[in-house]
């Protein structure tokens, strides 16, 4: 880990101001991903702004009937919140499927959105990785890619977004609220937040330098059956091979986002009218243009089969 200077901020504006003032600064929230990467020098901030105690840890109902979630609400607190459990079951289920109890106690909502890929070549600084070192090449495409992406990927990167929570957020049409150093605020959808890799896989989000996520807003509940089905080799404490987050109505309509297959939670709204026709038709549309490797082409079938299970479960 490279040496860095450290400061604690006490309010969001102070954090963004400090970031603007200090070259090479990074915000530190829970630290469960950033510190991991700093130990390997995949991340090497010169200055850490600890935002752990700047507030932003409340969950409040919005006037519109939705939910306003502070960026620093922990995964545990979010999953345990009565309104989340009652009205946004998909989100609670996705959170609880991720990581471990210890990590969920520390991991924050915004940090979770921004967690980086678990591609093993990204994690090993001796290997070629365009995400870590732009232009160096990608060892994963011809290497061990069983866990990696099948769609939304590029010739320079097949890494996946590894998380669970964002899959649910995407299906729930969550939006992200941010503040910049100059105080300007904006709101982004998750598809606006996450970039696809193209030839610049090191650019993962559209956040500007020193821009801070302050909250995540969920629209009013949409009802329906909420199911998050995460498929993995071991029963717990593992990243998804494939995960399906679904909100399904009695008439067969609904929304579906899929994790473990793409650089961002994968949802194609235009495919969703096909849901009543069944998993096969929908998945064909959802995964149109997929370019799996030989090692991960099983995910094509796995998405369809997992969705089949989810659709069946929703009927019962």
């Amino acid at each position: 880990m490279k040496t860095f200077t450290y400061e604690r901020a006490s309010i969001p504006a102070e954090a963004t101001a400090a970031a603007a003032r200090t070259p090479g600064a990074k915000f530190l929230a829970g630290g469960t991903n950033l510190l991991d990467l700093m130990k390997l020098e995949i991340e090497a901030p010169q200055h850490i702004i600890d935002i752990g105690k700047i507030g932003l840890n409340k969950i409040e109902s919005t006037p519109a009937g939705g939910l306003h979630i502070g960026a620093l609400v922990t995964n545990t607190d979010l999953a345990a919140h009565p309104i989340v459990r009652r009205d946004y079951g998909l989100l609670a289920r996705a959170l609880l499927a991720g990581a471990s109890g210890q990590l969920r106690n520390k991991a924050t909502t915004a940090g979770n959105l921004l967690q980086r890929t678990r591609c093993p070549y990204f994690y090993d600084t001796n290997q070629l990785c365009n995400k870590r070192v732009p232009g160096s090449g990608c060892a994963a495409i011809a290497g061990f890619s069983r866990q990696l992406g099948i769609i939304g990927t590029s010739t320079s990167c097949i890494a996946t977004y590894p998380g669970d929570m964002a899959v649910a957020m995407r299906a729930l049409d969550a939006t992200v609220e941010t503040v910049k150093a100059n105080g300007a605020k904006r709101t982004l959808s998750l598809d606006q937040l996450y970039r696809l890799p193209g030839q610049t896989p090191h650019l993962e989000t559209t956040l500007e330098k020193n821009e801070l996520i302050t909250s995540i807003v969920l629209p009013p509940p949409v009802g329906g059956v909420h199911i998050y089905h995460k498929v993995r080799d071991r029963s717990s404490y593992a990243f998804a091979l494939v995960s399906v987050g679904a909100i399904l109505k009695k008439d067969g309509t609904g929304r579906v986002a899929v994790g473990g297959i793409a650089p961002r939670p994968w949802r194609i709204e235009s495919a969703e009218p096909l849901l009543p026709s069944g998993a096969k038709a929908f998945t064909a549309q959802l995964l149109k243009g997929a370019r799996p490797t030989k090692e991960n082409e099983f995910k094509l079938a796995l998405v369809e089969r997992t969705l089949t299970a989810v659709l069946n479960e929703a009927k019962h």
Binding site: R118, P120, D124, F144, R234, S235
Partner: peptide
């Protein structure tokens, strides 16, 4: 060996 940590090399957990 590519998966050279305890996240990449999975061993059984309690739930298994």
């Amino acid at each position: 060996f590519v998966n050279h940590d305890l996240a990449g090399y999975e061993v059984p957990v309690h739930a298994d």
